[in-house]
Amino acid sequence: MLDFFNSTQSIHAIIIVGSMALFFIGFYGIATQKNLVKVLVSFDIMESALFLFFIGLHYKVGLVAPIVDDKTKTFTGMVDPVPQAMILTTIVIGLAILALGLSFGIEYYKLTGRNDISKMNELRD
């Protein structure tokens, strides 16, 4: 039973199903929530789903993290480091956008006392 879960394919299946579920939770949040903070949190959930999906699909059972030290002689048996570097960068960008969005939200709240995005409709003809 546990061997079954320790195979690459079943891990990939779990990751695909889990990250898709997480993605749609985030999507539901964006579609239904009206509070700006909740919308931004939903974005983060969606992004996290993407990160999990990408990192997870590059993992194979039996491979180790791509860390090189003095004892490393060969470079086989390691997972691909490029996706991890890419995801780290994307996490940082996501954090910057989240911080910017929250700071806009705070300024807007100070000015109007509202943080409901459905009532942000002053930009119109």
């Binding site: 700006l36 919308v39 974005f43 956008i97 910017l100 969005g101 806009f104 939200g105 300024e107 807007y108 000015l111 109007t112 995005i117 942000m120 002053e122 930009l123």
Partner: peptide
């Protein structure tokens, strides 16, 4: 940093994300 400006910033940020 008035109502219109911040509103456009927030809208652009959500669409852009």
């Amino acid at each position: 940093k008035d109502k219109l400006g911040l509103e456009s910033g927030i809208k652009y940020l959500i669409i852009g994300s």
